[in-house]
Design a protein around this nucleic acid. Structure first.
Length: 261
DNA sequence: ATGCCGGGCGAAGCCCGA
């Protein structure tokens, strides 16, 4: 079972890339972030063609997350618990049946948090606290669980092309990293790091200043697995291809493979 | 150099992202 996460930076602008990716890679599940449109404006044409079920939480112009799946999707949460008044479309969680049983997945678009002296950073930290509390509950179910998305966290300096330059940034801030560690220490496995311990492994390259051509990137997109999912993890990787295409997203897909037997 | 690029909105130029 192949599960992929991809921040597409506008699904309307990226639909050709996404449909081509689905046809070429044929993932069982594709977790999407930054749709930047309302659910009713999501361009479904082309996706039902290639045979995917779709679960969306949209918002006009900003944010927006989704789950595409070959198998039917039963949505469990359309907002991260802990603040019912949170208007930002950043979380969707669902249960997917497969031949082996169920897999629970979430598509996460964690707040960026810059600049750190503003309420944006406080919102990020509060959002991470809500995520920690919710995952603590989810882990008691003892299901295979895959929490994928754009976490807007570089977990360590190995995940940044310029650690000194990003030292005070919300992506790398000590309080951000401490919460990410707390999340992982609940018992989650970083699927990419499980197979690729080296530095210089990135999932995002800024559009500006030739970052892509200079390979000046950040590792922001993660797949965190519960023990029941990690036990089945057979491979993981970054698909850099889409980032090199015309009119790309600034993020590229990250994938993991779970054994089906 | 707080702009560089790119998307949304809405129809010019600003807000936002990371």
């Amino acid at each position: 079972m192949k599960i992929v996460t991809w921040n597409v930076n506008s699904i309307k602008s990226r639909l050709p890339h996404v449909t081509a990716y689905l046809k070429a890679v044929s993932p069982d599940v594709l977790l999407l972030q930054e749709l930047k449109c309302l659910e009713e404006a999501f361009p479904l044409n082309g996706l039902d063609e290639v045979g995917y079920h779709v679960a969306l939480v949209g918002q006009k112009a900003y944010n927006g997350v989704g789950i595409l799946s070959k198998r039917p999707v039963d949505v469990e949460y359309r907002i991260l618990p802990g603040d019912a008044g949170d208007p930002q479309a950043r979380y969707v969680e669902a249960v997917i049946q497969n031949a082996r049983g169920i897999v629970r997945v979430a598509s996460i678009y964690l707040p960026n948090g810059n600049p750190i002296e503003t309420e944006k950073f406080a919102y990020k930290l509060a959002w991470m606290d809500r995520l920690i509390a919710h995952v603590r509950t989810l882990l008691t179910y003892e299901d295979p669980l895959v929490l994928g998305g754009d976490y807007n966290v570089c977990p360590t300096d190995d995940d940044v092309y310029d650690p000194e330059g990003f030292a005070g940034d919300a992506l790398c801030h000590p309080e951000t990293r401490a919460r990410f560690r707390t999340l992982c220490y609940l018992g989650l496995t970083d699927a990419l790091r499980a197979f690729h311990p080296q530095s210089g492994l990135y999932t995002f390259w800024d559009y500006q200043a030739g970052c892509w051509n200079k390979d000046q990137g950040l590792r922001l997109d993660h797949l965190l697995l519960s023990p029941q999912a990690a036990d089945r993890l057979t491979a993981s990787g970054v698909d850099k291809g889409p980032r090199g295409q015309e009119k790309p997203s600034d993020h590229t897909p990250v994938w993991c493979e779970l054994a089906d037997d």
